[in-house]
């Protein structure tokens, strides 16, 4: 049986283990809550993570479509990017899928044919990890951009609209010269 077929059969167990592992990156009290509470609105972190992992796992069953993978991993990483994680901690869970899959395969993982398939699978996981890192950086940049924009807009915009800010007159901008030089 092809690796993908085996993994699809074991999908529920693998995703559950993967989810547990991601959730265990939180403190124990939090991790218990994230696993227990099923309401997506009472527990957005847990439900977003679980839904995301399910979709990503499906993405990994064939050639990785970067756009689809990015769409599925974005919600998970977006959350972790504002939480108390280093970049490695925020994205590292992707790589742990390799071990989970091997554990699930047991002795079968040592089979030479299987090892070749696993190598290809590993490469897709690595690619996914890089996508996760890209998303993480994008989110962090977004946070800083929001911060910078907010500072600028907070009151300046209103003052500007009210004409309380003295702006460079139009003609100076057009001619590129100031009145003094004309």
């Amino acid at each position: 049986m092809k690796l993908e077929s085996v993994l699809v059969k074991k999908q529920t167990a693998i995703v559950k283990k993967w989810f547990d592992l991601v959730v265990d990156t939180y403190p124990a009290d939090t991790s218990r809550f994230l696993k227990r509470q099923k309401d997506p609105f009472a527990n957005p972190v847990g439900s977003t993570t679980l839904e995301g992992l399910k979709a990503i796992f499906t993405d990994l069953m064939g050639e990785l479509e970067p756009e689809s993978a990015m769409g599925h991993i974005d919600p998970i990483i977006r959350i972790r990017a504002v939480q108390n994680f280093t970049p490695g901690q925020a994205t590292g869970f992707v790589l742990s899928l390799k071990k989970i899959v091997r554990d699930q395969l047991g002795d079968d993982a040592g089979d030479p044919e299987r090892r070749k398939e696993l190598e290809a699978f590993d490469a897709r996981v690595d690619q996914l990890c890089l996508i996760a890192f890209d998303v993480f950086v994008k989110c962090r940049e977004k946070i800083f951009q929001i911060q910078a924009t907010e500072q600028r807009n907070r009151f300046f915009k209103a003052f500007e609209r009210a004409g309380l800010v003295s702006e460079i007159p139009e003609k100076e901008t057009d001619s590129g010269k100031s009145d003094l030089t004309q």
């Binding site: 939180y26 403190p27 009290d29 939090t30 994230l34 527990n43 957005p44 972190v45 939480q83 108390n84």
Partner: peptide, 8 residues
Amino acid sequence: FFIGTGDP
């Protein structure tokens, strides 16, 4: 804040 930060 607990739900969002995950800090017990």
